[in-house]
Amino acid sequence: MKCASKALRSEVDLAIKKQHADPTFGINVGRQNNEDSVGLTFSIPLNIRNNFSSEVKAASEIALSAEESFKAEYLEKLQLIIGSEKVLFEYEKRYLHWQSIAKMALVDADTLLEKQWKSGDISTTDYIQLLNQLSDGQMVGIELEQKWKLSYIELLLNEGSISNAISNL
């Protein structure tokens, strides 16, 4: 976008330079009726009606418009990145919290529950119901991990650095 901005600035500079017409000077050499002739011409343009200010103004407006479009797009991308970072950190925090509380408890609960069922401390119906609750807890963890990783991918996409991340795998 910087190259486009430089090009538009160059157009503005060119339009400003065209605003003032330069005088011209010419020499004509030739023969006329068997006589050598030399002619001199000198021209000074008078900018009475057209001072080219509209071209300068138009070029300036185009350059300003392009610059503002760039700024708007930049700010939009920046907000997307900031939002993606916040989502990523929130999912990461929730997943790590779940992991610290539930993951180890779920593994131990599974074996403890099976021992209680085999020894007859709990009924088969209670055992199945408790296994379903354990699996629901594990599903919550899997979903949190999935959302966390997807939000990371979203951040990489918004930053435009997904190809760098893939090449580092």
Rank of each mutant, 00 (worst) to 15 (best):
R31G: 07
N34W: 01
N34S: 15
E35L: 13
E35Q: 13
D36P: 10
S37K: 15
G39Q: 03
L40G: 01
L40V: 15
L40R: 01
T41R: 13
F42D: 00
S43M: 11
P45Y: 07
P45M: 11
P45F: 07
L46P: 00
L46Y: 12
R49H: 15
N50D: 10
S53M: 02
S54I: 00
E55Q: 10
E55P: 00
A58F: 11
A58G: 02
A58C: 08
A59C: 03
S60R: 04
E61C: 08
A63K: 10
A63S: 14
S65I: 06
E68A: 15
F70R: 06
Y74W: 15
Y74R: 14
L75I: 05
K77T: 02
L80H: 08
L80Y: 05
G83Y: 07
S84W: 02
S84N: 10
E85D: 03
V87P: 06
F89G: 02
Y91K: 08
Y91M: 09
E92L: 06
L96A: 05
H97Y: 06
I101Y: 01
I101T: 13
A102G: 02
A102D: 13
M104R: 15
M104T: 14
A105F: 04
L106S: 11
D108H: 09
D110W: 07
D110H: 12
D110K: 10
K115R: 11
K118R: 15
G120L: 02
D121F: 01
I122A: 01
I122H: 00
T124M: 09
Q129M: 10
L130P: 03
N132A: 11
N132T: 13
Q133T: 08
L134D: 02
G137H: 06
G137W: 08
Q138I: 05
V140H: 05
V140L: 15
G141Y: 01
I142H: 13
W148R: 00
W148P: 04
W148T: 00
K149P: 04
K149W: 12
K149A: 03
